[in-house]
Computed example of a mutant assay.
Amino acid sequence: MSQFTIEDLKRIMRACAGEDESVDLDGDIGELTFDQLGYDSLALLETASRVQRELRVALPDEALGDVETPAQFVAFVNGRLLETAA
């Protein structure tokens, strides 16, 4: 995988924590907060763990504390992938 996308994140979010019936993950979720999407910090950590396993990239827990939206998460993962490839 050359780049992690919002679609990749949606797939993993559904697999890890399911989907809150009041939230449509098929919509434009990039700028919504994880709280607005019904994903708490535990769900986010589980999502990050799955991303780490699938992509073989380290996502430090302390850095995830600053990630509030799916768009930020995708950018963070892609930044880590670039660092790993360098």
Rank of each mutant, 00 (worst) to 15 (best):
D40V: 01
L64E: 07
L64H: 01
S49I: 00
D28F: 06
R53E: 09
L32E: 13
T5K: 07
L55T: 02
E83T: 02
L25P: 03
S41Q: 11
D24A: 11
D66K: 15
T84Q: 14
R80F: 02
G30T: 08
D66S: 15
L55R: 11
L64R: 00
T5S: 14
F76S: 08
V57M: 09
S41Y: 11
A58Q: 13
L55H: 04
M13E: 06
R80G: 06
E54I: 08
V23T: 11
S41I: 12
A86K: 09
R50K: 03
T33A: 02
G79V: 08
R56V: 13
E62N: 14
Q3K: 11
E19G: 07
P70L: 03
E31V: 15
T69W: 03
F34K: 10
A85P: 05
K10C: 09
F34M: 07
A58E: 14
R80T: 08
L64S: 07
L45Y: 06
V74W: 03
P60W: 00
G27E: 12
F76Q: 05
T47H: 01
L32N: 14
V57S: 05
N78G: 09
V74I: 08
D35S: 11
L9T: 01
R14N: 08
L42P: 00
I6S: 12
V51S: 06
T69I: 04
V57D: 05
E62I: 14
S41H: 10
A48Y: 04
R50S: 00
D28N: 08
E31F: 13
G79K: 02
L9G: 04
Q36I: 03
A71N: 09
A86D: 08
I12K: 04
K10D: 09
G65V: 13
L32I: 10
G18E: 05
L37R: 02
D26A: 13
Y39P: 07
S22H: 05
L44G: 05
A75I: 12
P60F: 01
L64K: 01
Q72H: 11
L82N: 12
G38F: 02
A58H: 12
A48R: 02
I12S: 08
R14F: 03
A86T: 09
A75L: 12
P70H: 00
F34A: 01
R11Y: 11
A43I: 05
E62W: 11
K10H: 04
Q36T: 10
L81D: 09
E68R: 14
I29L: 06
L45V: 03
R56P: 08
A17K: 08
A48K: 03
P60V: 07
E54Q: 13
F73L: 03
V51A: 03
